[in-house]
Amino acid sequence: MGIRTLVGMLVAALAVIGLLATQTSYSLFLPGLLQGALLTIEIAVLGSVLAVVMGVLAALARLYGAAPLRWLATVYVEIFRGTSALVQLFWLFFVLPQFGLLMDAFTVAVLALGLNVGAYGSEVVRGAILAVAPGQWEASIALNMSRAQMLRRIILPQAFVAMIPPWGNLFIELLKSTALVSLITLTDLAFKAQQMNQSTLKTVPIFTLVLLIYLVMSLAITIGMRFLEQRASAGLSRGRAA
């Protein structure tokens, strides 16, 4: 799908929200929902940053780390990929305090979702690094670069382009997983909607708005990633005919 179509969808979604907001039966709920959306965005953004950091670190550790580091990274990836995000949230929020480690709900939300998605992300990063042509490594060795120099200057910039679309998927997954945080006392967009629905029973306007707000957020991610992809691949395919 072209970036124009995506931007068109985003504008349309915003326009529908604007249109609905002219009716009091809808506008009534908008401030509360936006308040919930703000928390959702905060958790999604911070969680995504943590996911990228963890994904890159775990991938590098698994590929090039010394044995203990490699082992640690594998344990991390398998645990956080192999158990559900919900269980991880509960563990960090309800179980760890039993061992004396107490964190506030927001921190737990960012940590659990970031670590969870980072575990998937490490496979994305690892795959993209391994997909760089072997000749690029060989040329770097022939130029006597160190392992760190090769990675930083030659391999990662090329792997980066291949990583962008799958990371876009993961960011959207993370955005949607934020709905789980209501279970550890946070009032995110989905939970706000449930609360409002229970007290007012205005199911149609509330969940119509919720759907549109989620759509706007995920479209924003998709468009952002598409821009990033275009910019990054421009350097690689500059002037390439056909």
């Binding site: 042509a133 000749g135 690029q136 060989e138 040329a139 022939a142 130029l143 006597n144 030659i154 910039p157 090329q158 350097g235 690689l236």
Partner: peptide, 17 residues
């Protein structure tokens, strides 16, 4: 030691970026 050696490859292997 290998700083003394350079190599040119069949498939060029230039850095595309």
């Amino acid at each position: 030691v290998r700083a003394k050696i350079g190599m040119v490859f069949q498939s060029f292997n230039l850095f595309p970026h």
